[in-house]
Write a protein that binds this DNA or RNA. Structure first.
Lengths: 115, 115
DNA sequence: CAGCATCCTGTCCGATACTG
DNA sequence: CAGTATCGGACAGGATGCTG
């Protein structure tokens, strides 16, 4: 046995678990968008999150809901109205997302300097 | 114009920029692994990051290097020896990764309770 | 308005074999 | 030891059309 026995297992790694929740192309953006505009309506998200398609928006919201990150509140009205908010647990993600936003700005600044 | 003009653009979103650096299946794990065992040798990473293949390890390390996150130090020896460390800039990612690890543990705990 | 059902495409990733 | 090179499959993600 060597002195350094650290193991980083993709199955058990907590970082990977987090990536599976907020990873992918849209999840983090959506969490941020809902955090900023809460309560956020479906159509509102579709307009503010530029480039996302309806089907992607639906599926990503559903996954976030299943993971306990967001609440989905349906109003029995015509026309339909659905509001999304972060759950209490979802709110614990916001510091991470905000840190990521801050870091992303630094990164872009660095990239711009490199040229 | 409505009162709420926030836009979350996939091209300019700083959160997306960060995701492109630490996203994917292995990047965050690798950053964490190098952070914990620095300086980390190639073979050492291959052993500790269970499940990763050589080609993936090589390509992911190369991308992290190109993004300015890690340093690659080659020793002109036989047998070859390469050491990876986080750059100063890469170190600014560690609080984020650590937060993600902490959050991932909470998430797993929640999931376990749900059953 | 807020979805769902299909179909399709690109890329991410893994397996395997070879090298300085 | 620390890599390359090549190949192929799975899956995330996108386009489009339809619905309560």
């Amino acid at each position: 046995m060597n002195e350094n026995n650290l193991v980083f297992n993709e199955k058990t790694c907590p970082v990977t678990a987090t990536m599976q929740v907020i990873g992918g192309k849209w999840k983090a953006i959506l969490i941020n968008a809902i955090y900023q505009t809460s309560p956020a309506r479906f159509g509102e998200l579709k307009r503010s999150v530029t480039g996302i398609t309806q089907s992607m928006l639906t599926s990503q919201l559903r996954e976030l809901e299943d993971d306990g990150i967001i609440n989905r509140k349906v109003y029995a009205e015509i026309p339909p109205k659905v509001e999304y908010t972060l759950t209490e647990f979802g709110l614990t993600l916001s510091p991470i997302i905000l840190s990521m936003a801050e870091w992303g700005r630094k990164y872009k600044f660095n990239q711009a300097q490199k040229k």
